[in-house]
Amino acid sequence: MNNPQYPIARKNGLVVQEVPDEVLVYDLDTNKAHCLNKTAAAVWQSCDGKTSVPEIAKFLSSEMGTKVDDDLVWLAIDQLNESALLESQAEPKFQGQGRRDAIRKIGIASMIALPIVASLVAPKSAMASTSCRCDNGQNLDCQLQPSCPATCNTSGGLNLCQ
């Protein structure tokens, strides 16, 4: 983000689907799938580059009917930043023990759920989700798994592409 006080949500290279109380984001560049909970999604959708962190907190406060602290927004922004869901990277506000302390402090004070961005990597190809096993003892089992070595090692009943 050019100015970390005015974060911008990334738009390009993402596929977005909303499900009840969550937003799913698939990153076409990294094949990563992210699930933003309601709080993280609300922060992300507010990151337009024109709204400051305190303004986002204020907006969320009115939307959710309870006071939202700036630090809660920063927690969301740190995670969105780590997940490459913002336009440019910045130093996280909270790290290590500082983040754990912040989560504890905000968690106690906040009436809304803490922001969570859960992420998983999808395999680059359909066959990447296979196991590199060659149960038939044949090299062709391996050749059909492009992410695996091409030769089937059957010694000792191993039956693995190596």
Binding site: A33, C35, S119, A122
Partner: peptide, 13 residues
């Protein structure tokens, strides 16, 4: 949750 479940299914999709 549905969202967390769906991202667990994505690697198999």
């Amino acid at each position: 949750t549905p969202g967390n479940g769906i991202i667990e299914v994505i690697p198999h999709t």
